[in-house]
């Protein structure tokens, strides 16, 4: 299905050294995305999904750093590049979209100025060429009257339109990979659908690989080709969207799916997974999910399961790995 991945992450580990010892925020994260493919990354807040995106972009907040593993973009290692070389990768080869379009744009520059700045940073273009390109980009992301709107300032756009501008900025240099970190979370539901449709269209038309970070299963179901589920800094299940959503293997994924209320059905109590995700400095031994898991057994408290292929996906659970919990 994906012969040569655009992005390949192998055994990524991110550490945060602190006063009370080092906290490992991500460990053993391995994933790949092919051209034209959308990989959804889901999980609770703090599970490490945004952190994975930041690590790929080389924008981990200090003192966080990549402690082990490698990140390959088109087969080239990018996790160990010095900052000035990484500046040429960001924007040029990896585009990024962040959660809040209201604060992602500099309020003091027109969207045209911000677009031209990004374009000219990465492509050898004159001012007027970059201007033409900026208008094209705005048209491409579906902004009406782009030649007029290019002179407007961020505050003159609505939230949904601003997220389109942010997407145009991410696309400015035709990157191979886009990391979209909760791109629809701050938007109205009706706008969300437009933005996810736009992302999907751009990905398929340009053959861009997209990593879509979100906690919204609905967005994943509509947009992603494959989905990766994260828990406490680790990947616990990864597979094709229809497989994982229809037949989740990992008890945590099952819990996530069960907690989505069905439309039309009014129930007394909403389903939930009891308890909360452990703090990163207090992850229990064995499987990190075992204290909340309904099917956990003695083995889950002692040994950590690795990702293994199951009938429908790849998941990290003793139920599938050894047959017994």
């Amino acid at each position: 299905m994906h012969d040569k991945p655009v992005l390949e992450v192998r055994d990524l580990q991110v550490d945060f050294p602190g006063r009370h010892g080092t906290v490992t925020a991500l460990s053993n994260v391995s994933l790949s995305i092919a051209a034209g493919e959308i990989l959804g990354v889901v999980g609770e807040s703090g599970a490490g999904k945004s952190m994975t995106g930041a690590a790929i972009l080389g924008l981990l907040e200090r003192p966080g750093h990549i402690a082990a593993g490698e990140i390959l973009l088109d087969g080239r290692r990018i996790d160990n590049l010095p900052d000035h070389q990484m500046e040429k990768v960001r924007g040029r080869e990896i585009g990024a979209i962040f959660q809040d379009p209201l604060t992602s744009l500099n309020p003091l520059f027109s969207v045209g100025a911000q677009l031209s700045e990004t374009i000219r940073q990465h492509l050898p273009m004159t001012k007027s060429q970059a201007r033409v390109r900026a208008v094209e980009l705005l048209a491409e992301v579906g902004i009406p009257a782009p030649s007029e709107r290019v002179n407007h300032f961020p505050h003159q756009f609505s939230g949904g339109m601003r997220q389109r501008v942010v997407i145009a900025l991410a696309l400015a240099a035709r990157p191979k990979l886009i990391i979209a970190d909760e791109p629809t979370t701050a938007l109205d539901v009706s706008i969300q659908a437009q933005i996810t449709a736009l992302l999907r269209r751009l990905c398929k038309e340009n053959g861009t690989a997209v990593m879509l970070v979100t906690h919204d299963m609905g967005v994943i179901a509509e947009t992603a080709d494959r989905v990766a589920v994260m828990y406490a800094g680790r990947l616990i299940e990864i597979g094709a969207v229809d497989q994982v959503l229809r037949a989740p293997s990992h008890p945590y994924t099952r819990g996530l799916m069960a907690s989505i209320p069905a439309l039309g059905a009014r129930v007394e109590r909403l389903n939930q997974i009891d308890g909360s995700m452990p703090r990163l400095d207090a992850i229990p031994p064995g499987c990190a999910f075992n204290p909340r898991c309904l099917s956990s057994g003695p083995r889950c408290r002692m040994e950590r399961p690795d990702l293994v292929p199951t009938a429908h996906s790849t998941s990290a659970c003793w139920l599938h790995a050894g047959g017994t919990a």
Binding site: E87, G91, T103, S104, L105, L108, A170
Partner: peptide, 26 residues
């Protein structure tokens, strides 16, 4: 610390330009 500075970094704008153009003007 603001988002647009982080986003400017993600767009590949060089550090000095972010500091003296985007951040300073704000």
């Amino acid at each position: 610390r603001s988002d647009f500075v982080k986003f400017a970094r993600a767009r590949g704008i060089p550090r000095w330009r972010i500091h003296f153009r985007h951040a300073l003007r704000n």
